[in-house]
Write a protein that binds this DNA or RNA. Structure first.
Lengths: 142, 142
DNA sequence: TGTACAATCTCTAGCGACTAGAGGTTCAAG
DNA sequence: CTTGAACCTCTAGTCGCTAGAGATTGTACA
């Protein structure tokens, strides 16, 4: 039950160059090759890649995933370190949510205030030119 | 009233290499130089950089800022194009908020379900290994 | 005027997590 | 045995900066 990289890609829904990338950065082990140097994967690789993909979908960074993977390889150890990783991620998601919520109000107000006249009278442009006209303080948002 | 790049940086709170970067990508015009090739800025540059910084803080992409800047240079034109840029951005912020909200529940549940035993019994690791155990469908989140 | 040193200069490379493309090789079906 | 899809490696590009090296310039003080 050997899978080509294309088979693996379709099964796990991870793009082919991404799989090679994960191998390159050491998230996935380098698989055995055919005589013609093509990669062949087994069921272990399928699970591992699924794990990675799922964690990425949940927004975990590669470094966090690396830690989670190495934790899952030690089933007897306590799982606090995993908790901590998830908690840190949750907190960053919450910070991000707070920022974006503020940002959303700001953008809504800009649109509401717009009188649809010439640019000269446009509140959108005015607010951008002058932070004092903002309703809220806001920090950087990516 | 000529400002060095350091003066400008302090005034607008934009880092020095970032100012040079904005010049390089054409967001800021190339300023006049001293005999020794050091940049000297005037009040126009201060306003323009403030505009840019504010828009970046609000999460607008550089391309959007480019358009907003060129709109603000034509005060007689109608401001609908500016509206549209802001609206598009608002919509992407809203999409992002929806994703992150879902993600937050997912992470919270993972933490709640954790029994703090060994990794073998850890729901966090189990959920990551198997998407079917997720409470929600979730797409990619950055 | 001399000198020290902070500020500035250009250039290149790195970040994170991929993605795209060129140009060549291998596999598998018919 | 031929065809062509799938695979290979390698480099470079994405976005919006940020960091560093190594050289030059500006300026405050003696």
């Amino acid at each position: 039950m050997d899978l080509s990289i294309g088979d693996l890609s379709r099964r796990v829904a991870v793009k082919l160059p991404t799989i090679r990338y994960y191998e390159q950065i050491g998230l996935l082990p380098a698989p055995p090759r055919t005589e013609g140097r093509q990669r062949r994967y087994g069921p272990e690789d399928v699970s591992r890649l699924r794990f990675i993909r799922h964690a990425r979908d949940l927004g975990f960074e590669v470094e966090a995933i690396r830690e989670l993977l190495s934790l899952s390889a030690r089933p007897d150890q306590p799982c606090e370190p995993a908790d901590e990783i998830v908690l840190r991620h949750l907190q960053s998601v919450e910070r991000r949510l707070a920022q974006l919520t503020l940002l959303r109000s700001e953008l809504r107000h800009m649109l509401e205030d717009c009188r649809h006249g010439p640019v000269r009278e446009c509140r959108i442009i005015q607010v951008l030119a002058n932070h004092d006209e903002c309703r809220y303080e806001h920090g950087k948002v990516g």
